[in-house]
Design a protein around this nucleic acid. Structure first.
Length: 476
DNA sequence: GTATATGATTTCAG
DNA sequence: CTGAAATCATATAC
């Protein structure tokens, strides 16, 4: 934009007399350009003649202005101030000023005005939402409870970690306070700066064309700058909250061993379903309820248990023996009860198959039976390719010719088989001289080292589990 | 302090 | 999605 154009347009717009115009122009040129270098872009013909309203007259005016500009350095400061004052007080000044503002608006500022309407920043919205969700940006007191509740839900319930929660909430409050203090500071600084700039612009608007719109625009720019700083604050606050969360609420970090009782229940189930230690969803839910843990924790436990048992069966032998011995008698009793139930339910059915089992699976088993069972369960020299007990159960059923047994009884016997197998192996298997490891290894484990795909749904919690546990737990 | 146990997570396959 | 395997990170025992 060139000043000469401005001036020329202004002169066209004014209805004042040319003399007035000329004087104002001269004054403006002298004052507002004071101290600025004037480029040679205004290469105009030398002034000549002054005939009134034609183009030559305008050129003459401009020539005068240029002349004043050229001589401005010769003026003293007092002279300049006096001229400035004269200009401000000039009766034409307001009219000219508004015209200049209008022109300025139309030219330079309209370019920048286009991209002013920016949509709400999605990043900022995300941060705001998160801070709100975390209780940092929300209402003063109630805010923290949402995050704390979320934390409680994430950690699987239970009131055991209330200490950690209070710690967490304390830290969160700290972050919240810092956040609000900083936010306040930013807002204050923003307001102060805005006021300062507005005053400055208003002051300057006495000598140069600054429209209210332009001030407004400037305020907008300042606010945007400050909001970007604010976003940084929000971002770092979010990061702090994230770190806090991971520090305090990450389940892995907060790992707590399960209670002895819970471990016992899980171990009992595991060792009594050793041939197929994959609890169904219902069984998991029941175990979870019994152990006061979540279903996924049950799944984790069984996953870990399976892999660790398989990896080092020898290490778990003692544990297996313990649980087997512990549950053996109960298992037998439960089996007896189950058989009796089945008998009662189906009096016409011969019960030889399970009756035999019921009798045989006593701890005082006869030598021959023991050996037989041992061979059945451990296989020849500890081969891993034996049919699992579930298969055996089924084959016994088919041998019997009886398929009437309900799932309940089947599952019960299934777990008895698992449990008793340990006892049997314990008493009969040591003759194999194969070492302890092989004694438990065949239980459902195939050659690939995985449990065979037992079709038996172990949907029933081990019947041997009871409240009256006698011995102490060894797993923890 | 280290060593081991253990619950959780990640990665990958089916 | 589930489960196997590896791994992480903490708890606990010594």
């Amino acid at each position: 934009m060139s000043f000469s154009i401005c001036v020329a347009q202004c002169t066209d717009s004014l209805s004042a007399t040319m003399d007035d115009q000329a004087r104002i122009m001269q004054s403006i040129g002298g004052v507002s350009l004071a101290g600025h270098s004037v480029q040679g872009g205004m290469a105009l013909p030398p002034p000549h003649g002054h005939d009134g309203t034609d183009g030559d007259g305008r050129k003459q005016d401009i020539g005068d202005i240029l002349h004043q500009i050229m001589t401005i350095t010769d003026q003293s400061l007092d002279e300049a101030q006096a001229k400035k004052h004269g200009l401000n007080c000039h009766r034409m000044k307001p009219a000219l000023f508004s015209v200049l503002c209008e022109i300025k608006e139309k030219t330079g500022l309209s370019i920048r005005g286009a991209q002013e309407e920016d949509p709400p920043d999605p990043q900022l919205m995300r941060l705001d939402n998160m801070l709100l969700a975390e209780g940092v940006a929300g209402p003063e007191k109630g805010g923290g409870s949402a995050a704390a509740a979320a934390a409680a839900a994430a950690s699987g319930g239970a009131a055991d970690n209330s200490i950690e929660h209070s710690d967490y909430r304390a830290k969160l409050t700290q972050i919240r306070q810092i956040y609000h203090t900083e936010l306040e500071k930013y807002e204050q600084a923003c307001n102060e700066f805005t006021t300062h700039v507005m005053n400055l612009l208003r002051e300057q608007s006495r000598t140069r064309p600054i429209s209210p719109k332009e001030i407004e625009r400037m305020v907008g720019i300042i606010h945007r700058k400050f909001s970007s700083i604010q976003m940084q604050l929000k971002q770092s606050t979010c990061e702090a909250v994230m770190i806090l969360r991971s520090r305090f609420l990450d389940a892995r970090r907060k790992r707590r061993n399960f209670s002895k009782q819970a471990t016992e229940i899980l171990n009992e189930y595991f060792y009594s379903h050793l041939s197929n230690p994959y609890p169904s969803e219902e069984a998991k839910e029941e175990l979870a309820k019994k152990c006061s843990i979540t279903v996924s924790q049950v799944s984790n436990w069984f996953g870990n248990k399976r892999i660790r048992y398989k990896k080092n069966i020898g290490k778990f032998q003692e544990e297996a023996n313990l649980y087997a011995a512990k549950t053996a008698v109960n298992a037998a009793h439960a089996a007896a009860a189950a058989v009796q139930n089945s008998q009662a339910n189906s009096p016409t059915t011969p019960n030889s198959g399970f009756q035999m089992k019921d009798e045989e699976f006593q701890l005082d088993s006869a030598e021959s039976k023991n050996t037989l069972l041992s061979n059945m369960f451990t296989g020849s020299s500890g081969s891993f390719n034996l049919p699992n007990s579930g298969d055996m159960f089924l084959s016994m059923q088919s041998l019997n010719g009886d398929s009437y047994q309900g799932a309940q009884v089947g599952a019960n016997v299934q777990s008895q088989v698992d449990t008793l197998r340990h006892v049997i192996s314990q008493t009969a298997g040591y003759n194999d001289a194969l070492g302890g490891n092989t004694m438990y290894s065949p239980h459902g484990l195939n050659a690939n080292g995985g449990w065979q795909d037992a079709t038996t749904p172990s949907s029933v919690i081990s019947p041997t589990e009871g409240p009256g546990s006698v011995h102490s737990d060894t797993s923890n």
